[in-house]
Computed example of a mutant assay.
Amino acid sequence: MHDHSPHDLPHDAPPSGAPHPLIARLEAEFGYPRLASAHDVAEFLARPGQHCLFIPGDPRRNLETADAAVILPELRLAFQNAFDCAVIDDAIEAALRERHRALKTPGLLFFRGPDFLGAIEKVRDWSDYLGRVGHILSLEAA
Rank of each mutant, 00 (worst) to 15 (best):
M1D: 15
M1C: 10
H2V: 14
P6T: 05
H7Q: 11
H7I: 01
P10Q: 05
H11I: 07
D12H: 12
A13G: 06
A13L: 03
A13M: 06
P14N: 01
S16V: 11
S16W: 04
S16L: 10
S16N: 06
A18K: 10
P21L: 02
L22C: 05
L22D: 15
I23K: 02
I23H: 04
A24I: 01
R25V: 04
R25G: 06
L26K: 00
E27S: 10
A28G: 02
G31W: 04
Y32K: 00
P33W: 02
R34A: 06
A36L: 01
S37N: 05
A38T: 06
D40Y: 08
D40P: 04
L45A: 04
L45F: 03
R47E: 11
G49K: 01
Q50M: 10
C52F: 04
L53R: 02
F54L: 00
F54M: 00
G57W: 03
N62P: 01
N62F: 06
L63S: 14
L63H: 12
L63A: 15
E64M: 08
T65N: 02
A66V: 01
A66S: 13
D67Q: 11
A69Y: 09
I71A: 09
L72Q: 07
P73F: 09
L75T: 02
L75C: 05
L77Q: 15
A78M: 04
Q80R: 13
Q80H: 14
N81Q: 14
F83K: 01
C85M: 13
C85N: 07
A86P: 12
A86D: 11
V87D: 11
I88V: 15
I88P: 07
D89M: 07
D90Y: 10
A91N: 13
I92F: 08
E93T: 07
E93A: 15
E93L: 07
R97G: 09
E98A: 14
E98L: 13
R99I: 03
R99P: 07
R99N: 10
R101W: 14
L103H: 12
K104L: 15
T105Y: 08
P106E: 11
L108S: 07
L108K: 08
L108W: 14
L108Y: 15
F110S: 05
F111W: 07
F111Q: 02
R112M: 02
R112T: 14
G113N: 13
D115W: 08
D115C: 09
F116N: 04
F116E: 05
F116L: 03
G118T: 03
A119N: 12
A119F: 12
I120W: 10
I120D: 10
K122Y: 13
V123W: 08
D125S: 13
W126V: 02
S127A: 14
D128R: 10
D128P: 01
L130P: 05
L130I: 13
L130N: 06
L130M: 09
G131C: 04
V133P: 03
H135A: 13
I136K: 07
S138I: 02
E140S: 15
A141P: 06
A142K: 09
